[in-house]
């Protein structure tokens, strides 16, 4: 393998993988052995090796979500050894490397668990609840016409930095998966504070937070009890301060918006 460490010793691992044929079926943990895993592999490449073994043996491969494999798309979503995206802090599953494990380890791999995140198959989870929350208000309406000039609207550096920090949320759902209450408030708060900070977000500021929180509740996510598991497991480090901002924005909107319904 190009660029790999020639001294790295290949690993043999026992995997305990959640297998579930479809949404309705009852799932269970199935044990698999994988051999000669390079420590330089990513976690998903290790699963690719498992799937190739399964295909060669005429078995159904393990379904799991992935897309960019660069840690920016938020598609990969595995609950590894009891942690969202595995044991390493500040990483997505695709950026978790096998060198973080040791030869002979047993690794438990489960899908995100939450009533609002039904399991499609095996480790693949339906996170369209997040899409519907965004559709409810996580956007800025833009007038038609020519493309606006860059930096046409002056934004102080400090504000733009804080907005960008919140905007790093990739919507992977690790927060919901880790939360005892399956609360989506870290996700919603990142979107709400990002847009509330920027001048472009002011027009829809009040309706946005009202509608996004209403949709979040409708999807059946839990209520935050300030435990902090979400922020600890977030691969991009969204902080709990955003949830305080969400609470403020919500209360202010409810107290002052013209929406009486």
């Amino acid at each position: 393998m190009a660029g790999s460490n020639p001294n790295a010793k290949p690993m043999n691992l026992t995997l305990k993988v959640w297998r579930q044929p479809n949404r309705q079926a009852q799932g269970k943990i199935v044990d698999y052995q994988v051999k000669d895993i390079s420590p330089d592999m990513s976690f998903l490449e290790m699963l690719d090796v498992l799937n190739e073994d399964l295909l060669r043996g005429g078995q159904d491969p393990v379904a799991f979500d992935h897309d960019c494999r660069e840690g920016i798309c938020g598609s990969c979503d595995l609950f590894i050894n009891g942690r969202s995206h595995g044991p390493e802090k500040g990483t997505t599953t695709c950026q978790l490397h096998m060198r973080k494990f040791s030869d002979g380890d047993t690794i438990t791999i489960e899908p995100w668990r939450a009533s609002s995140f039904p399991v499609n198959k095996d480790l693949s989870v339906d996170r369209s609840a997040f899409d519907r929350i965004i559709q409810a208000g996580g956007y800025v309406s833009v007038n038609t016409g020519g493309a606006p000039d860059g930096n046409e609207i002056p934004i102080p550096k400090e504000i733009s930095d804080r907005a960008f920090e919140a905007a790093t949320c990739i919507g992977c759902g690790a927060c919901v998966a880790a939360c005892k209450n399956a609360s989506a408030m870290l996700f919603v708060s990142a979107k709400v504070s990002q847009l509330a900070l920027l001048p472009q977000g002011q027009v829809e500021r009040k309706t946005r937070v009202e509608n996004m929180v209403a949709q979040m509740d409708k999807e059946g996510f839990g209520a935050c009890t300030n435990i902090g598991s979400c922020a600890a497991e977030c691969p991009v480090g969204i902080s709990l301060e955003n949830i305080a901002i969400l609470n403020r924005e919500f209360l202010a909107a409810k107290a002052s918006s013209n929406n009486l319904a």
Partner: peptide
């Protein structure tokens, strides 16, 4: 919200 199927680990 947490659902009936808990985590194994």
């Amino acid at each position: 919200a947490r659902g009936s199927q808990g985590y194994v680990s």
